Simulated assay, not measured.
Amino acid sequence: MRIAQLESRTGVGRHTLRYYEQEALLPGIQRRANNYRDYPESAVRQVELIRQLQSFGFSLSEIRTILNGIQSNEVDCAQGAQLLAEKRLDIRKQIRQLRQVDKLLAAEQVRLEESAARQACNVSEQFS
């Protein structure tokens, strides 16, 4: 498939797709006789996996290590387990921080709702 099709199917821009290719995150890309890139069907899933891992906080370097291990079927289990353990710690920290932010936002929401209710009472009393 051409890059426009891959872009359309994944929602990832062509500049990013070319960057992924340059960073060796998208293997198996052939060149046609007209020098256009020809992406395999598997590139769709590969791009989706890259985006998911990025959204979980994995760096492109870490993603490359994971993808290389998957593609070669030679995963260093100890290294993989350590990487995942570190990411889980990061995620737990983010969850704690998000819970704190949620509590602050909930308190502010209550304060604003109470203020709005008082203002509505004051307005209705003026017109009575």
Rank of each mutant, 00 (worst) to 15 (best):
R2L: 14
R2W: 10
Q5G: 08
L6K: 02
S8N: 14
T10I: 11
T10S: 11
T10L: 05
G11W: 06
V12E: 02
V12F: 04
V12R: 02
H15K: 15
T16H: 05
L17E: 02
L17S: 05
Q22K: 14
P27W: 05
Y36E: 11
Y36V: 12
R37N: 05
R37I: 03
Y39P: 02
A43I: 02
A43H: 00
R45T: 13
R45L: 09
R51M: 13
F56Y: 12
L60D: 03
I63E: 02
I63N: 00
T65N: 02
S72A: 15
S72I: 01
N73S: 13
N73P: 00
N73F: 05
D76Q: 11
C77R: 14
G80K: 00
G80L: 04
A85Y: 03
E86S: 15
K87C: 05
R88N: 09
L89G: 07
R92E: 15
Q94C: 03
I95N: 02
R96W: 05
R96G: 07
L98N: 13
Q100T: 09
V101K: 12
K103H: 14
A106I: 06
A107V: 01
E108C: 01
Q109C: 09
V110G: 03
S115W: 02
R118G: 01
A120F: 06
V123E: 04
V123L: 06
S124L: 11
E125A: 08
F127Y: 07
F127A: 14
S128Y: 07
